[in-house]
Design a protein around this nucleic acid. Structure first.
Lengths: 234, 234
DNA sequence: CGGCTCATGTAAAAGCCGTTCACATGAGCT
DNA sequence: AGCTCATGTGAACGGCTTTTACATGAGCCG
């Protein structure tokens, strides 16, 4: 993999042509390999085949590059969640669970994005467009919670959707950041992070009074002994 | 500008006397101010009034200093949780809630420790004594979960204590790291992180079948409409 | 086609940091 | 008193971030 711009096509001399994009891509590579702390501006420049000063034509400083990555991360995250939610199809609870899984999948498959978004230590509220992107992503969870809240069993108080959304988010982020990634902070778990989160969310939903038992033939779980949402640890 | 310890008291010459401790203290200060990434070895040395090379007599490198801080953090954390749990007094659920609050309090009041422990990006499993300290802290949560699981209402399946402990941990860590600290990643919340976590845990416990309504005169909540564990946002 | 301009690159340099090495100091023991 | 070893110093290397002055050449205008 030669970084040089002999990318199959014409030798591109003095000007790179698409340096900004190349830098973002390089940064993603580096962050996913060495964490957001280990990533260096100079390395990204080297990988893109330019001098260490070149990146400054495109980013005010190193933090702005990371912020750009976080920005993109939130956008992709929003897309992924939107897709997973699929407007609540085929049913609200199923879709909701799918969102949880998508959250974990994102954290695992895009560790660079995830750590830029949540673990880079950069002030989220400093950059207003970043903040907005983050809130658009959260809005998906919030909308899902809204739909779920509307399903509250009659006779029970309807839980505040915002609170539900925050709860779900904290569970997802907690599981993802403690147990989610390959080897960071790995502890021996009795189950996969996915199963852990699924059980957690199901128990939580049940605590709100939702009937979350969606197994075939479990239409009226009211009378039999409530089976736990945790299966046998597989 | 004399770097010497003209610290009010005796002129301490060539030898510092307690450099290791001074470095740890300085690092704590710096980390709490600028995050674990912003902290520099040289700064700590400067703050302790020694040359930049001196710290290497006490720590192999910068990472080892951070690991030492994380280690201490886990020890203090364990103490705090033990104290909060107080062996389940006056009753299991109350004590359990107190542990949750202690968790958040620690994250908020000792941000330097907390970020060294959970957000510094250092491999937890590289250092076995660090790993052990981390597990001793988790053991408190686990023990509390065990006691709670034993209280499962008769006739319901008893939830695995380990799973409960992991769930509680992920909720606490999620809330702490998303909403816990002063200005990092602050979002507008409808309630305090403490209340958010308390409601989350109570709903979760209810989902497991526990009667978590501990308000005076709420002895038999089985027949009245279940009041939500979320109060009015205060 | 010739020339202007400005975005985008480079080279060099300043200042910081982490880390190492040879050397200095002095605290504690014999 | 003298020895020794833990602990500190200073200088040096290489790398990173960031700034500055300068170079290049792509796109546009006449």
């Amino acid at each position: 993999m030669s970084w040089r711009k002999d990318q199959g096509r014409a030798e591109r001399g003095y000007h790179h042509g698409n340096l900004k994009e190349a830098l973002l891509q390089a940064a993603l590579d580096l962050i996913s390999k060495k964490g957001p702390a280990g990533f260096t501006f100079a390395d990204a420049a080297r990988m893109a085949g330019v001098s260490p000063a070149a990146p400054y034509r495109h980013f005010r400083d190193r933090d702005e590059l990371i912020a750009s990555i976080a920005q993109r991360g939130f956008e992709q995250f929003e897309q992924l969640l939107t897709q997973a939610w699929d407007d609540g199809r085929p049913d609200t609870v199923t879709a909701f669970e799918r969102v949880g899984k998508a959250y974990l999948a994102f954290a695992r498959e895009e560790p660079a994005f995830y750590s830029a978004m949540f673990e880079s230590g950069l002030p989220v509220d400093s950059n207003s467009t970043l903040m907005a992107a983050s809130e658009r992503a959260f809005a998906i969870i919030r909308a899902a919670a809204e739909r779920l809240a509307a399903l509250a069993p009659p006779g029970t108080p309807r839980p505040p959707a915002m609170m539900m959304a925050l709860h779900i988010w904290s569970m997802s982020h907690g599981v993802a950041s403690l147990f989610g990634r390959g080897d960071a902070a790995r502890r021996k778990l009795p189950m996969s992070p996915e199963d852990l989160l699924e059980a957690e969310v199901l128990i939580y939903l049940r605590g709100l009074g939702f009937l979350t038992d969606r197994r075939p033939g479990a239409a009226a779980p009211a009378d039999d002994k409530p089976a736990g949402p945790w299966g046998k640890p597989k």
